[in-house]
């Protein structure tokens, strides 16, 4: 029986073609993945700085606020600062959203020099597509008495009473990031 050996070159060529295709596909896939990863990294960087900027802005606004307390204690000043921080709509800019409604603000008294520590949990939705950052921060604010004045008033009964008014202002603030969560919605949808 005669064996036909022609046509082997086509098989060699097909093998070469398959190997070439595999190599090129692999190289292209790696390059595209690399680009996608880089683009996501840029989105995260943008979201990160928007979020940090929002916190910085909040502190800057807080430091300009002055609260007066009459015959009250420091606790009233803290409450006022908290209410002020939560109620500032101008902190919410178009590019970023500081969700002050969801802000958990817990004050902790410290013994040293009457400094006050506030724990501020701020979820921040940034304008960066598909990226949301949830930051838990410890915001350490230092309220100090700016002015203290005592006025004497006479009551109806003719008894003299003293009313003390204290003006508090935040003299400094420091933020420590306790947790940092970047929610990449595009990546999450890719995984599902």
């Amino acid at each position: 029986m005669k064996r036909r050996d022609e046509g082997y070159i086509l098989i060699y060529v097909l093998v070469v073609v398959v190997v070439l295709c595999a190599i090129v596909t692999g190289v292209c896939t790696v390059a595209l993945r690399n680009l996608q990863t880089q683009e996501r990294s840029i989105q995260r960087t943008r979201a990160l700085y928007e979020a940090e900027g929002a916190i910085e802005e909040l502190i800057a606004q807080l430091e300009t606020y002055e609260t007066g307390v009459q015959d009250g204690d420091e606790g009233d000043a803290k409450d006022n600062f908290e209410a002020y921080a939560k109620g500032r709509p101008d902190i919410t800019a178009a590019s970023k959203k500081l969700e002050t409604d969801q802000t958990t603000w817990k004050w902790e008294d410290r013994d040293v020099n009457g400094d006050t520590k506030a724990i501020l949990l701020i979820p921040i939705a940034t304008a960066v597509p598909d990226s949301q950052i949830v930051i838990s921060t410890t915001l350490e604010v230092l309220p100090h008495i700016k002015d203290k004045s005592t006025t004497k008033t006479e009551t109806i009964d003719g008894v003299e009473a003293e009313v003390t008014e204290e003006k508090y202002q935040i003299s400094g603030a420091a933020v420590t990031y306790t947790s940092y969560q970047i929610i990449d919605q595009a990546e999450a949808s890719d995984e599902t």
Binding site: I55, E56, A60, V175, Y177
Partner: peptide, 14 residues
């Protein structure tokens, strides 16, 4: 985009 403090204030608090 971000928010920074003036240099004379000693920069950011973070």
């Amino acid at each position: 985009h971000t928010y920074v403090r003036p240099a004379e204030s000693g920069g950011g608090g973070t």
